[in-house]
Simulated scan of single mutants.
Amino acid sequence: MTEALKETVSSAWTDVKRGLSSAPPNDAYLAWDAEGVETIKPDEQEKVQRIKEVMERMQKHNFDLHRKAFRATHVKTQGIVKGTLQVHRDLPEHLRQGIFAEPGKTYDVAARYANEPYLLQRDQENGPRGLGLKVFGVTGPRLEGVDDSVNTQDFFFNNAPSIELTDIDTTLDIMSLREKYFDDPAALGRHLKMRTDLVKQHAPYMLPNTNMISHSMYTQSAFRFGKYYGHMALFPVPEAQKAANDKVKNDDPSCVLSDWLFDYFDGKEAKYEFKV
């Protein structure tokens, strides 16, 4: 390995460790319209369309393999549960935004636990895990183009605190590689190792492969929240939930993560703090 490459890997690994750390929150809030928060490139819409086309072809590939419809990522469902989301009664004013505007309000929710990768895989394979949260009974302004009759809001979480798809160009590159080597994960891994951001691309696959119920979950990307800009996250509360962190072993069933979720919810309650 050349000295230049060693320096690149060392720098990237430092960034990854910072991203995976549980650093304390800081109160230097970033305004949503601060300079540098978002810079839209001239060809961004064109590349967004190309990414959509790549992901649609990946979905078609999965359908052809399994004769079932799957997403382009977070393909393997591990479990779906129903629950409630209760807004804290004493939220400070700057956090009273959107569905959190009314203190004490309760919403019905459905949560989907899943493996993040784009293909069905054995649970022995390391990789990031996800949690999709659908909130029901939501009213208010919608994004442009969304049916006004829709009364749900979706949040998408991942147990990797930061996203390795750092910009539009990286996303297009990685999605194109995933499509090209869809049926050959080993070849995909070899090509990812040739990238200058190789440590960042492999970081999510270094996460502990443990019972999903114990994971903290993050939005990865940051979003506007009222006047500010930040991440959202779910943190387990019950001690039994945090302690359910068994590691997946080679001789476990290929669907062991799903089995553990079913076992946990058979008599126990999961509870998360939703934080911004």
Rank of each mutant, 00 (worst) to 15 (best):
R50C: 06
M194T: 12
I99E: 02
H66M: 02
V138L: 06
K275I: 13
F262Q: 14
V146H: 06
Y229A: 03
T219H: 03
L198M: 14
T170W: 05
S221L: 08
M217V: 10
F63C: 09
I213R: 06
K242Q: 06
R142N: 04
Y118W: 08
Y272D: 15
S254F: 08
L198V: 07
Y264W: 15
V146W: 00
V16M: 12
K271D: 09
L65W: 10
L165T: 11
R142A: 03
W13L: 14
V199G: 07
D108T: 14
V237Y: 01
K76Y: 00
E102R: 14
T73C: 14
K268A: 12
Y228K: 03
V138C: 00
D252C: 07
K105T: 12
F265S: 13
P25V: 13
L30H: 06
P24F: 03
L188N: 02
A4P: 00
N115A: 09
L234W: 03
I51D: 07
A101H: 01
A233D: 10
K247Q: 13
V150D: 05
V256S: 03
N245T: 03
W13P: 02
A101I: 10
L198N: 12
K60W: 04
G267M: 11
I168L: 04
A72S: 15
F225L: 00
G130C: 13
G226T: 04
E125H: 01
Q201W: 09
P236W: 08
A243I: 01
R96C: 11
R122D: 12
K268S: 07
L20P: 07
N211I: 05
R57F: 02
S149V: 05
I168D: 06
I51M: 05
Y205Q: 07
Y107R: 06
T73Q: 12
S149G: 07
F262E: 15
V37C: 04
D167C: 03
S22E: 12
Q121L: 09
S21Y: 00
P236T: 10
R96G: 08
Y181S: 07
A114K: 05
E164P: 12
A240M: 00
R224D: 05
T14L: 15
S11I: 12
T73W: 09
P238F: 03
I168M: 13
K68D: 09
M217Q: 08
T170A: 11
D123I: 10
T152P: 11
Q45K: 12
E56K: 12
M194P: 08
A233P: 08
Q78V: 03
D173E: 15
D27C: 10
Y218H: 05
K247C: 01
E273W: 15
P238C: 01
I174D: 00
F223I: 00
L85N: 13
D123T: 06
F274W: 00
H94V: 11
E7C: 09
V150N: 02
G79S: 08
A28F: 13
P128S: 04
I40C: 01
N26T: 13
G19D: 14
L261E: 01
H191G: 00
